[in-house]
Design a protein around this nucleic acid. Structure first.
Lengths: 334, 334
DNA sequence: GTGAAAGCGCTAACAG
DNA sequence: CTGTTAGCGCTTTCAC
């Protein structure tokens, strides 16, 4: 099955392909109005579709942005993609998405793919805080700008937009305490994810602010997914320590813990209150009707796209870091 | 910033670019082992990355599959993408994703983009049952095979994998009735989505099976998103008819209705039981602990990929339709 | 306003 | 086993 090319159109009209190219590119300044009309008419009669491959090869850039994310079980990244895609499209960019499944090896592989496809820039949220730093640096040195969002790394020449994990977490733990919870378990994330470190710190500081002792036995490694979260919770429960609340690192681990607790007969949220963050969203299950304090993903997507496009258009401009805060809104539970 | 090309490598070693090309393509049969070694060594010393654009332009196919989906608020499509991506990668295909946001206009646009990018095939779930049929047909005639999944259309020369909406819905409504619910509201989907039609039919038939009259006032147009669902529910409630259950078409509309009912003070699921389907997943909120009967998305992704690749490799093979059923498993609520 | 020609990076005959 | 050559479809000087 052959595609129609500008040569086919040129032949059909007995003119040169250069003219056709100009006409189809909308260069009305350099092609006769009448010729233009005829070309356009024939083009869509024949069902012509420009071959982007050829255009890109020639132009040396693809007008394509790669989005790399670590997972897709949580709604945060999907919402990000949706917004980013819409925004980028308006600026004439296509988007390609790759998921690394929290696996640095696959992330490396995805990055290589992005390079082979000659994307103009990359929007990414890392799966490991250090594993692939050399990779990121290589990309950037090659002239492919990266803008990190949500899960960012340090020590790389790239722009980044993050949420203030520390502040947000602090708010959550504070909310639990104000509700009268005193024995709060923290399902901590792995140390190689920098957000996890900040959240743990916030947990400690919030307790101290209320003059409470930080009991290390209440800090358990909660992993990243539902299974790990459930397993961690099981271990904790078996320890026999009393508890009335839980602050988890990932949404998935928290949900895993929740399922387990329900199986064991705990009543949620009356007996055990839960809360966690998911991307830009702060979820607290303390109150069943009002469960989330939300920083719209939109803001993050918008900022990330803006920063990236700026880097693409001005390769030498200094990198920026923006920390989202404020603008919190309440959202009803679904 | 210039990329390294095979010419650079050839010059570096004082040989021809053909040999380099062959070596890098792994054609050990036609290049001396020693030459091979040197080429590979230089290639990665210089940080060479094959330019897929050039390869594809030359080869006349891209090894890329386009995935077109209508929305991304529900987890179903995201899970589908994740699985499909993983499976296709194994077969050497890249994936590009586009979201049409339930808008036929944007779907058309996305389809055009896929064509311009010269994807080898398309995996899609439509947003409208008829609006773009001509488009799908044009693509297929041009030699770009389409495999529809979940939301498929009829009357197009394409393979499809769907879930048996009728049977699944029938099961759901039956479950409600067996739980003692008699006044079941149906939040129907738009008639232009074929799944909606099947589900409505199942609703009617299930009631009849139990000798119940179908009261048309209990069938309300529920729309596709949370707002529309809530609005529809509000209208129904204002009508003042008694009801003790709700069977919704989309997950989002059902969630919208749920929020509204909660706001109005209804207790869920005791006072009003809810259920709906989401992609391959049957969700019933009748029972709080056990809320879903699930047909793994995986099965759908796997089948869709297989059908599509088969179409790509054998353009003239007859189209197939696969209806997933059986293999249902219970899933704990999260 | 239009055409001829060069070339983006790569592969695939075809010779040697 | 290796080199030469001819494009894939398009844009972009440079002439006319």
């Amino acid at each position: 099955m052959k595609y129609v090319t500008i040569i086919d159109i040129a032949k059909e009209l007995g003119i040169s392909k250069s003219t056709v190219s100009r006409a189809l590119a909308g260069d009305s300044h350099n092609v006769n109005a009448e010729t233009m009309r005829r070309i356009v008419e024939v083009a869509d009669r024949m069902g012509y579709q420009r071959n982007e491959l050829a255009v890109n090869l020639r132009r040396q850039h693809t007008q394509t942005i790669g989005i790399l994310i670590p997972e897709v079980v949580t709604t945060f990244f999907m919402n990000f993609i949706e917004h980013a895609q819409r925004l980028l499209r308006k600026d004439g960019y296509r988007v390609i998405v790759a998921i690394s499944n929290e696996d640095p090896e696959q992330e490396r592989e995805n990055l290589r793919m992005m390079e082979q496809c000659r994307v103009d820039g990359i929007l990414m949220s890392v799966c490991h805080h250090e594993a692939n730093i050399d990779c990121y640096q290589r990309m950037i040195r090659k002239g492919i700008p990266i803008t990190f969002f949500d899960r960012a790394v340090e020590g790389v020449e790239a722009s980044r937009v993050v949420v203030d994990d520390y502040i947000m977490s602090f708010l959550l733990v504070e909310a639990l305490i104000r509700k009268g919870r005193r024995r709060i378990v923290h399902l901590a994330g792995p140390k190689h994810v920098r957000n996890a470190v900040a959240r743990l710190q916030a947990y400690r500081d919030a307790l101290r602010k209320f003059g409470m002792e930080v009991d290390e036995r209440y800090i358990v490694a909660g992993g990243l997914n539902a299974e790990e979260g459930a397993a961690a919770m099981r271990r904790f429960v078996e320890g026999g320590l009393p508890f009335d609340a839980l602050f988890g690192f990932t949404e998935m681990a928290t949900l895993g813990a929740k399922s387990l607790l329900q199986q064991l007969g705990y009543r949620i949220p009356d007996e055990v209150a839960l809360c966690c963050m998911s991307g830009t969203t702060l979820c607290t299950l303390v109150h069943p009707e009002l469960t989330a304090v939300e920083q719209p993903v939109y803001a993050m997507a918008e900022t990330a796209c803006r920063l990236l496009i700026h880097q693409i258009e001005h390769p030498d401009a200094p990198k920026e870091e923006v920390v989202l805060r404020g603008d919190l809104r309440f959202r009803a539970s679904t």
